[in-house]
Design a protein around this nucleic acid. Structure first.
Length: 1017
RNA sequence: GGGUCAGUGGCGGAACCGGUAUACGCGCAACACUUAAAAUGUUGUCCGCACUUCGCGGAUGAGGGUUCGAUUCCCUCCUGACCCACCA
């Protein structure tokens, strides 16, 4: 027998396997498929350490077993090479990212190849390959077409060190996930993907997935769906209202009655004059009735409903004093209706003294129904232009504001502060309203004059905007805030007057950016105590002692209980009260059930070089082209965008012009200005517009790192058809359907809320396009537990504790390393590396090697004990690999070998079985021994052994005897021994008699083939 | 603060659905082989008492409960890891 020379054996078989193309994907068969996928790596400059391959070993073991079980396997590997780490590495080492990535990939492949993986390298993908990213760009374009990709100017997270914007998901604890620098807020034009449209499905489809509970929970938590209500808190004003009704209407119509009552509910005076000749109105007739019958003062607000708006304008024109405001709903200043002519066309003078009107009113609000069937956008624009203000586009319940309740009008009149809450049951204890510093109310022209401490407020807002996320949240429990003096809100439940505060603990981007605060929320409670804002309670906890404290406001109770001080809702439980209160407020037009998500749209642009160019061209000529302008309404940031104050049409790059290649440039360092380095490459930026041929400019932002990995699992499948991924997508449909979904996906838990959400989002989008037929991409997901360094810390170059797989493979062999990593402990658990304990795995393989010498060719009679062991081992190893309990599979193989070694000699068939079971873990040594005992085909082409369920038990088993729960004796018997016989046998044993003598046997139990339990008294 | 998971020898860990806790491996000890060491093999190795043997008692983070029987199920608490975190 020769020495076990791992270097020789491993090199030899790796070469043979490759030459024979043993691991090429075979798919022209009716056999069941199994798609086993690793999260593909990011090829960093440091190469792999021993921790990285752990997951790859697992998928290799799993897929090797599956292949032997007759499945057709897809087990590919590729590289995710765009993004910050590659780029930062390149900048630091002064190599072009492209060169660096090529080098790193080569190094990774070399390191992977010595471990003997069964990857089908023909299907390798590289996200930085233009053939690959043209599809990344293509998917983006499809999103653009569906309105799921849009631009936004909202402030986003900005990393001053990486000099790029970041997605919400890239921020950890207020710091940049890459470099740890605290992120800042920066407003800039950026691309955003509307992942929030998929929020609900991203939660509900988690249901059927075979995923670790922890990931499912973190995804739910990240998406953060919460059901609640939006409740409107009207701002208190001293206004009195004059409502002017429209053509063919009377104040007795439901709509006017409803509007009047709603306003009166909040203590406003309302006048609705009856306008004469409602069916054949004239200007003089209607205006003079108003002038004669209505009183106006500086607090008067006129509400004009459709034709009433025209009357309102004429009235204001005639007034000799100033009134507070004008609100028009469906107003117009020219009688050119969309649908038909109206008989008052010639009875009104369509010339207006807009200057006079403007000087006579404090504020003007123009409402236009987006579905208006009579008044066109041009008419509304004419009105707005005349009055020098903007249009508020709203959706009316009846086209043209003809519903019997039009809550948008009420909103415009009352200036409600909408507030999101999940605890509507606490509304009667609402003590104050808190706005986020970014709340639009604080910069609304209409209110500035009413706020008495304007300067203080704007200082506060200013400071809040300068703070980083960390500073805003890190100050911990201590709240800061400032009262908005001069403005008060009304509690919609009881009409009570509430102060309004601004505080930066209220987040602008969640809910409505405003809350109502009360005694039943820790944060609100703290803030009220800090600033001495009076609060009261409205929920009584069940616990009486607690209630005593809560009632005295000594302690905050934020749980659920029974309502008190809540008018007609007293005595109800929180849960029921919530529903009823929202329903009740809804009838007053002041509340609506709403859903909110913590998930925010995916900020998709990066101001960096090393990423996929966003395939969009901006064209000024297209914008100027009136044909474009006529199409209404053009959606800002979806159809057109404003750059440096000028509008441009957003023109997608045509599919056939893809890929938009990343230009190869000398200087790719980030600019830090918010512009990508691509912006300086004028040859690349300036291109003809594909739509009109005019002067176009390319988008210069690139896509984030997570783009390419959001669909790579499909690219492997597509590679099976054509190495160059060609259009159209329909070419690939059949194969995609065949291999989808991924049956087993293995990777690190750190991707829980990024890659795994993004990929699910893209997959669902592709599902909606009909490109994939499953609604989820990854059926089963397993975590790899980290391998820590021997010192217990993370393995990192920084700590100098990295262990290199090349060294380990050289010293111990790939098979030993594979066995060791699988044997270390539970697969999904983090465990520290320990080179010393590797000898156990090495010894095991050496024993296998030596044991081959004991094998005899002739099949002797089966030895019962060995036979049972083999059957148990086949069963356990198969089941354990299936459920990824590799450590116990190996311990079973070790136990099995221990028993085999005790035998004088062993027949070849036993040994062959053993080799096949060990093969997924240690493919090289088993292949070598397989050939040594006379086989000429690869062991991987043999069939996974099966076991005989009748041979899992020994002829004789040890049976334990328990007396009052304690083991007092054991005896051996056949496993099929009956209860009766078991008991008799037990009772006759002297060790047992000692304990039961003189006592009464009360009860007996038995577990077949295992134990008898006797209870005595 | 919320969520998820875990806590078993000197160490990594095993134990199915409640049925002989400590499998398997590392380490350690003794012995064999050797001039010697390494390697290898054999045996032993949870703790305490007793010890010639049979044996007795205790132990799965702590305390309690359910049960003939609990590492496993329930309650309270302690500790640790990971993820999320002013989300109204």
């Amino acid at each position: 027998m020769t020495e076990y020379d791992h270097l020789k054996i491993e090199a030899k078989w790796q070469k043979k396997w490759e030459e024979e193309g043993l691991f090429a994907t075979k798919e022209n068969s009716t056999n069941k498929k199994c798609y086993v996928l690793d999260m593909f790596p990011y090829p960093s400059g440091e190469g792999l350490h021993v921790g990285h391959p752990k997951g790859y070993i697992a998928t290799d073991v799993y897929s090797r077993m599956k292949a032997m079980q007759g499945y057709y396997i897809l087990h590919p590997m590729g590289f995710d090479a765009f993004g910050l780490p590659a780029e930062n590495y390149a900048i630091k080492n002064k190599v072009h990212p492209k060169t660096a990535v090529e080098k790193n990939i080569a190094r990774y492949k070399e390191q992977l190849s010595i471990l003997g993986f069964n990857y089908d390298w023909d299907r390798e993908v590289d996200t930085t390959d233009p053939e690959y990213y043209k599809w990344t760009q293509w998917i983006f374009l499809q999103m653009l077409k569906k309105g799921l990709a849009y631009q936004s100017d909202e402030p986003i997270n900005w990393c001053p060190s990486c000099k790029t914007g970041l997605a919400n998901e890239d921020v950890e604890d207020g710091k940049c996930e890459r470099c740890g620098t605290p992120v800042e807020k920066k407003a800039m034009r950026q691309w955003v993907l509307k992942i929030t449209d998929y929020a609900d499905r991203l939660i509900s489809d988690l249901e059927g997935l075979n995923w670790p509970k922890s990931i499912i929970e973190s995804q739910k938590n990240w998406i953060g769906r919460s059901e609640g209500a939006t409740i409107k808190f009207p701002i208190k004003t001293g206004y009195n209202f004059v409502i002017l009704h429209g053509f063919t209407a009377t104040p007795e119509d439901d709509f006017y009655k409803w509007l009047k009552e709603s306003l009166e509910d909040f203590g406003h005076k309302v006048q609705i004059p009856v306008l004469p000749d409602t069916n054949e109105p004239t200007e003089d007739g209607q205006v003079s009735v108003v002038m004669d019958n209505v009183t106006f003062d500086e607090n008067t607000v006129i509400v004009g409903h459709i034709l009433g708006s025209v009357v309102a304008l004429k009235v204001i024109e005639k007034l000799d004093k100033k009134i507070a405001g004008l609100v028009t709903a469906g107003g117009f200043v020219s009688p050119n209706f969309k649908d038909k002519d109206r008989n008052f066309k010639d009875k009104f003078d369509w010339n207006f003294d807009f200057e006079k009107i403007k000087s006579n009113v404090g504020f003007i609000k123009i409402l236009q129904d987006i579905n208006d069937s009579a008044v066109s956008v041009e008419q509304a624009e004419e009105l707005a232009n005349g009055l020098g203000t903007d249009i508020d586009y709203v959706e009316a319940t009846g086209s043209h504001f003809t519903g019997s309740e039009e809550s948008t009008i009420l909103d415009a009149i009352l200036y409600n502060i909408p507030v999101f809450t999940t605890r509507a049951d606490t509304i009667f204890s609402a003590a104050f309203v808190v706005l986020s510093p970014e709340h639009p109310l604080l910069s609304d022209k209409r209110f500035l004059s009413m706020i008495s401490n304007r300067e203080e407020i704007s200082n506060y807002i200013n400071e809040a905007s300068k703070k980083t996320e960390i500073e805003r949240t890190d100050e911990g429990k201590k709240k800061t805030g400032i009262e908005v003096k001069g403005l008060r809100a009304t509690n919609p439940a009881d009409g009570g007057e509430l102060p309004i505060w601004v505080s930066d603990f209220v987040l602008a981007h969640y809910g409505t950016g405003a809350i109502f605060a009360d005694a039943h929320d820790e944060r609100d409670f703290d803030m009220a105590k800090l600033y001495n804002i009076p609060i009261k309670v409205s929920i009584r906890p069940d616990d009486g002692k607690l209630w005593e404290k809560v009632e005295k406001l000594e302690e905050c109770f934020s749980g659920e209980g029974v309502l008190v001080n809540s008018g007609e809702f007293d005595g109800l439980k929180s849960e029921e009260a919530r529903l009823k209160i929202v329903e009740w407020l809804k009838t007053k037009g002041l509340a609506d059930k709403t859903l909110n998500y913590k998930l925010r749209d995916w900020v998709f642009s990066r101001q960096r070089y090393w990423g996929e160019p966003i395939p969009v061209i901006y064209c000024r000529k297209c914008w100027e082209d009136t044909n474009f302008k006529k199409q209404e309404p053009l959606r800002k940031n979806i159809d057109f965008v404003v750059i440096d104050g000028k509008e441009y049409m957003i023109v997608p790059v045509p599919e056939n012009d893809l890929p938009v290649k990343l230009p190869n440039v000398e200087s790719y360092e980030p600019t830090g200005t918010g512009e990508s380095p691509l912006a300086n490459i004028s040859d690349w930026v300036n291109v003809p517009c594909p739509e009109c041929g005019g002067e176009g400019k390319r988008e210069t932002n690139t896509m984030p790192q997570w783009a390419g990995s959001s669909w790579y699992y499909l690219a492997y499948i597509m590679k099976g058809i054509s190495n160059n991924l060609e259009f159209p997508i329909s070419k690939y449909k059949e194969k995609i359907d065949k291999w989808q979904p991924v049956d087993l996906y293995v990777g690190g838990a750190e991707h829980a809320t990024r890659h795994l959400i993004y990929a699910r989002f893209w997959h669902k989008f592709l599902y909606d396009l009909g490109i994939v037929s499953t609604n989820e991409p990854f059926d089963r997901l397993q975590h790899v537990g980290l391998i820590m360094a021997e010192d217990g810390r993370k393995m990192s170059k920084r700590y100098g504790n990295v262990i290199n797989p090349d060294d380990i493979v050289k010293r111990f062999g790939a098979d030993t390393m594979r066995v060791y990593e699988m044997f270390m402990g539970p697969f999904d658990q983090a465990i520290a590396w320990n080179t010393d304990s590797m000898v156990g795995s090495r010894r095991f393989l050496e024993r296998v090697w030596k044991f081959a010498g004991k094998v005899t060719a002739n099949d002797k009679e089966a030895i019962n004990e060995v036979d049972t062991m083999m059957n148990i081992t086949i069963k356990k190893v198969g089941e354990d690999i299936e459920s990824m309990k590799f450590n116990t599979a190996i311990s079973q193989l070790m136990s099995c070998l221990n028993l085999l070694e005790k035998q004088e000699s062993i027949s070849q068939s036993y040994f062959e079985t053993f080799l096949m079971l060990l093969n997924p873990f240690a493919p090289h040594i088993t292949e070598e021994l397989w050939h040594q005992i006379g086989h000429s085909k690869s062991i991987t082409e043999s069939f996974w052994p099966s076991y005989d369920p009748d041979k899992l038990l020994l002829d004789e088993v040890k049976i334990a005897v328990q007396i009052n729960g304690k083991i007092r004796a054991t005896f051996t018997a056949s496993p099929s021994i009956e209860k009766q016989e078991m008991e008799e046998k037990a009772m006759s044993m002297p060790e047992v008699l000692r304990w039961i003598e003189g006592k009464k046997v009360v009860k007996t139990f038995h577990v077949p083939g295992k134990l008898v339990s006797i209870v005595v008294q």
